Amino acid sequence: MRLNRFIAFNSNYSRREADELIFNGHVTVNGKPVLVPGYEVKDDDKVSVLGKVISRSNFLYVKFYKPRGFLTSYGDPYGRKNLDDFEFFKKTKLAYSGRLDNDSEGLIFFSNDGSIIHRMQTPKYDVEKEYIVYTKRPLGDEEKLAMENGLEIDGYKFKKCSVEKIGRNKYRVIITEGKKRQIRNMFKHFNIEVERLVRIRIANITLGELKPGDFKFLTKDEITGLKECLRLE
């Protein structure tokens, strides 16, 4: 993690304040002044600001852009691409919320904070998940309305959801549950094939500028907002 981000993440200083402290020589790493905000803090580095050691947070909160063609799992007996192909996740083995199937792509949330992972996976908290969906053909007006009102498929009644047409064969879909291949199955119910599915948001956490395969630590504001969404604060 970059030095300025490390300070902002583990203290009450903002990123801008961290930059000023670093430039003014008030930050040391292992007892030596470091004047570069982009210095990469290692696991065993001791960071001090104004002579006070900055303690590391015990929790990690990470967002990741899962590329298409990768499993949301650690390891695979058949040798398919999975989370272990990304060194950070292979090393940390963080728990995750927001599994995506092999053919889908987009946002997955990772953390070692069990209370957050639990609430994100508990239906009663109605955590919103937002997707951009590209289809072979458009939904008819009645099909769209039926999907929004909650389809019943194979004896299971899905919750109501939001379906917004944003292109000829392109939709913004927001759901509050996460059944296996739910969105694909909802469109399949009307014999509509999904060509591409990208999750862009979970609760208040957005994909942002991440590219496939990229990950990023959440900011303090993102963490605070997420806890508010999950009624933890």
Rank of each mutant, 00 (worst) to 15 (best):
I116N: 03
G140P: 09
D113F: 05
Q121F: 02
K129I: 01
G106D: 00
D113Y: 07
V127A: 10
R119D: 06
I116V: 15
M120Q: 04
R137L: 10
D141A: 15
V133R: 01
K129Q: 07
E142D: 13
E105S: 11
M120I: 09
T122Q: 15
Y125L: 08
T122E: 15
I108Y: 02
S111P: 03
P123W: 12
I108A: 04
I108V: 14
Q121A: 14
N112C: 07
S104C: 06
F109N: 01
Y131L: 05
I116S: 07
T135L: 08
D126V: 07
T135C: 11
F110Y: 10
D113G: 06
D141I: 15
T122Y: 13
N112I: 08
T135W: 05
L107N: 00
E128F: 02
R119G: 05
I116M: 12
R119K: 14
I132Q: 08
S111A: 08
T135P: 02
T122A: 15
E128A: 07
P138H: 14
S104N: 08
E128L: 03
P123C: 13
L139K: 06
E142H: 10
D113Q: 09
V127N: 05
K129D: 00
M120P: 03
G140I: 08
I116E: 02
Y125Q: 09
I117V: 11
Y125T: 08
F109C: 04
K129V: 00
Y125C: 08
I132R: 08
R137P: 06
S111V: 03
I108Q: 03
M120H: 04
I116D: 02
S111Y: 00
S104F: 04
S104T: 06
E130G: 01
N112Q: 08
Y134N: 11
I132K: 07
R119W: 04
I116W: 04
K129P: 00
I132V: 15
D126G: 08
S115W: 10
K124N: 11
S104D: 07
I117W: 06
I117P: 02
K124R: 15
Q121E: 13
I117S: 06
S104V: 04
P123R: 11
M120W: 03
D126P: 00
L139S: 07
P138E: 15
G114E: 15
Q121P: 02
Y125R: 09
Y134G: 01
V133Q: 00
Y131I: 04
K136T: 12
S115G: 09
N112S: 06
S115Q: 14
F110Q: 04
E128G: 05
L139G: 06
D141W: 14
Y134E: 13
E105M: 03
S115E: 14
Y125M: 08
I117L: 15
P138W: 10
I116R: 03
L139F: 09
K124Y: 12
I116A: 10
E128N: 06
G114S: 14
V133M: 02
L139Y: 07
I108G: 01
G114K: 12
V133K: 00
E130D: 05
V127G: 03
D141G: 10
H118K: 15
I108M: 05
I132M: 10
E142Q: 12
M120K: 03
L107Q: 00
I117Q: 06
G114R: 12
